[in-house]
């Protein structure tokens, strides 16, 4: 049985800036990394491989250079890595992306049963958190988002029990397989690749599937299949703060000043 991990190659966004003129991300001089949430999905898949003997398949839709990121999954211990790459896939929004990924997962399922699909909870460049659920919906899988613990995986009974990390509370959910899980960072600590595996990964193949393999309707994929249009990307400018009074010298007076200020801005009831 397979556990499929969806990986996205993203720019290392801690340093990303937005070009004020073109409204696009400046990618020059920014290295690519695996989406950090996805690395936790990858780790969980490897853990399940160690525990249950599942086969780990890493898939990614992206340009040809995303091969580097997939190769790293081989270095970590993935059994197979598949790059979904074709010009017609380009310019996809989350809907078109999930169409391609779903089709690829279905194709894998036809070869060997898929038990789980693991995704990061969202990507750090798009932040939509839509692709994982999109795959689950399209493939009719159980949808378990924001997983921070996999409590039980019963392969013969075809059930999985997980804990979801929600605002202020946890939720324990059990559902039938196949299931799609999106995962949060608390789930695990990704491993560091050992050198023998890393060296071996350099020799291994990253399979490329283009649309001649997936045979999707070009109107459902890529730019054409994407109903989302981005009108502008920008970083919201934060107004400069001001220092009110002198808290060290006159704490009471300063507190009063602050209250007045907040009330005048309608931030506190009068």
């Amino acid at each position: 049985m397979l556990v499929v991990v969806c990986i996205k190659q993203v720019p290392d966004t801690t340093q990303v800036q937005i070009d004020p003129v073109t409204n696009t991300l400046v990618r020059e001089g920014i290295p690519f990394i695996a989406n950090p949430y996805d690395t936790h999905a990858m780790e969980e898949a490897l853990r399940l491989k160690d525990e249950f003997g599942l086969k780990v398949v890493a898939i990614s839709m992206g340009p040809p250079n995303a091969e580097a990121t997939l190769r790293k999954t081989l270095a970590l211990g993935a059994d197979r890595a598949i790059l979904l790459s074709d010009r017609v896939f380009g310019g996809a929004d989350t809907l078109a992306t999930s169409n391609v990924l779903s089709a690829a997962i279905n194709k894998l399922h036809a070869e060997e049963e898929v038990a789980l699909v693991l995704c990061g909870k969202q990507t750090i460049d798009g932040d939509t958190a839509q692709v994982g659920p999109g795959i689950a919906t399209r493939n009719g899988y159980s949808q378990l988002t924001l997983v921070d613990r996999v409590d039980n995986l019963d392969l013969s009974g075809k059930r999985v029990r997980v804990r979801r990390k929600l605002e202020g509370r946890h939720e324990i959910v059990e559902s039938p397989l196949p299931a799609m899980l999106t995962v949060v960072r608390e789930l695990n600590r990704p491993r560091y690749p050992s050198v023998p595996l890393r060296l071996a990964s350099l020799e291994r193949e990253v399979t490329v599937w283009d649309n001649s393999v997936l045979k999707l309707d070009v109107n459902s994929i890529g730019l054409k299949g994407s109903p989302t249009w981005v009108s502008r990307i920008f970083s919201p400018q934060r107004e400069k703060g001001e220092i009110v009074g002198d808290g060290a010298q006159d704490p009471k007076g300063t507190a009063r000043l602050l209250l007045e200020k907040l009330r005048s801005k309608d931030l506190l009831p009068v």
Partner: peptide, 13 residues
């Protein structure tokens, strides 16, 4: 590995 420095600063800077 990614940015050529352990501090996590963008290599281009």
């Amino acid at each position: 590995e990614v940015n050529g420095n352990p501090l996590g600063m963008a290599f281009a800077s």
